[in-house]
Amino acid sequence: MSQTCWNCGIAVSARFCEQCKALQPPAHDFFEFFGLSRQLALDVKDLEKRFYGLSRQLHPDLFSRKPAREQEYALEASAVLNDAYRTLKDPVSRALYVLKQEGFDIAEQGTKDVPPELLEEVFELNMALEELREGDADARAQLQPARLRFERMRDEIDAAMQLSFAAWHAGNERAKLDDVRGQLNRRKYITNLIARTDEAHVSD
């Protein structure tokens, strides 16, 4: 957020200038935008309330009689608002966002970032799934129970991730973020398995 109001020049620290009430350029950090500190364990109900409040305050229609520059800020703010809300309300995309902010580059990971036993496990699960998919009717009948097992694994990861969120909140230890990174990786593998059971249904 800029230090002085673009319109009247006084010092500003809020979304709107205290003196001339002009809308200021939006913060691009999603937490800062919502007036929140960076956190993983987020009260989603509170976030939703903030989202609806800001949607009303920032609606571009409210700025139609304002200077062009302020109209642009309103458009920009609405875009950030939607991105920020979509990213932060979902625990997985929120965790990816926080990891990126904290300097964990998820996209640059390789084999060394996955425990070998997870690769073995996922490989075996994929082999078993492929056998069911390519098997006879009896085998394919086991696809639905397999999907439910994968969903249960995903739910377990989500529960563990919530615990890691809270643990990071308590002490901001980097090791807790590394736990989250590991959980997100495992989750990706499991959700791929779920997607593959669905592919099998489509091709039937």
Binding site: A107, Q109, G110, P116, L119, V122, N185, K188, Y189, N192
Partner: peptide, 11 residues
Amino acid sequence: GMVGAPECGDV
């Protein structure tokens, strides 16, 4: 050799 790309979920 067993390798994986965690971001894509490949193995």
